[in-house]
């Protein structure tokens, strides 16, 4: 199997995976934010396609999803936005299964995956789709050469973990703590244990849920992660900008700085010569 562009994004040292919600607060602003995040050192963009029932999200991202939906974000507008991204990094679509299931004329994820491949999406993370129910989406992703990233949680049992490692492509999403998304000050004690349990796999391991600072990013890559996933910390920045009525360019500057801090932190966690 050829290495996907998603897996390849982890080749040059610790990768920064940056999440924002598409259309929060407008599609044009999101496009500007993505450019800034990539400028700041982002290696993979994880772009949220907002769903009305985001059960895996804490309040920060719930509110962002509401802003995006209120402003009219739809699956088609999302694909338009992806198609317009010039930055040269892979885009992962992060959404809930019902939106994939509804798209097109026939029930099932095939139509959306096909349209997403065309728009330039590289893979999917679907938090309410455990490996057990992932057959149809896996099939559609395989048909279009896209990756499907599974989430390994702190509660995941050994047999479930091995099943996911067999089936995940691109990278494995290591959920750093129980609960929902949301920026935290500290790295959860569960993270090093989770990474230790994944020591035996070559698949890149990226840790998300709660990462908000360069120092946390350093700790995480020092524990053996190949990358960090950051969402709520950016989305908090976007929310502050909305609350203060700051122009998108000002918010974009803040996002660029935050990405640069996170990327530098992640790099500090691994000794220089150890770049893979």
């Amino acid at each position: 199997m050829t290495r996907s562009d998603l897996a390849a994004a982890f080749d040059d040292g610790p990768a920064l995976v940056s999440y924002v919600v598409a259309g929060d607060p407008t599609p044009a602003a999101t496009a500007e934010y993505i450019d800034a995040l990539v400028d700041g050192g982002t290696d993979v963009i994880e772009l949220g396609l907002p769903f009305s029932e985001p059960v895996a999200e804490g309040t920060t991202i719930q509110n962002a999803i509401k802003r995006a939906l209120d402003a009219g974000m739809t699956p088609d507008a999302y694909l338009d936005l992806v198609a317009r991204i010039d930055a040269d990094v892979p885009v992962v679509c992060m959404t809930y299964y019902n939106l994939l299931f509804q798209y097109g004329d026939r029930a099932g994820p095939a139509a959306f995956v096909s349209a997403a491949a065309e728009a330039g999406v590289s893979g999917f993370v679907v938090p309410d789709l455990p490996v057990d129910e992932s057959g149809p989406l896996r099939e559609a992703c395989r048909a279009h050469g896209l990756d499907l990233v599974f989430v390994v949680a702190p509660t995941t049992t050994a047999d479930r973990r091995e099943r996911m490692l067999d089936l995940t492509t691109g990278f494995v999403y290591v959920q750093g703590r129980v609960g929902t998304t949301g920026a935290r000050e500290e790295v959860s004690a569960a993270t090093p244990d989770a990474l230790a349990a994944l020591q035996h796999t070559d698949i890149p391991k990226a840790v998300g849920f709660g990462v908000s600072s360069g120092e946390q990013a350093r700790e995480i890559t020092a524990s053996g992660a190949d990358g960090v996933i950051v969402g709520s910390a950016y989305v908090d920045t976007v929310a502050d900008g909305v609350a203060d009525d700051d122009p998108p360019s000002v918010v974009a500057d803040r996002l660029r700085d935050l990405a640069a801090e996170l990327k530098a932190g992640a790099a500090r966690g691994v000794p220089e010569p150890e770049h893979k």
């Binding site: 059960v55 895996a56 299964y97 938090p127 309410d128 789709l129 455990p130 490996v131 057990d132 129910e133 599974f150 989430v151 390994v152 949680a153 702190p154 509660t155 995941t156 049992t157 479930r160 996911m164 959920q175 129980v178 609960g179």
Partner: peptide
């Protein structure tokens, strides 16, 4: 039917 929940809950569901 089925079990469409986040992975963190799957062990509890099992």
């Amino acid at each position: 039917g089925g079990q469409y929940v986040p992975e963190v809950l799957m062990p509890a569901v099992e």
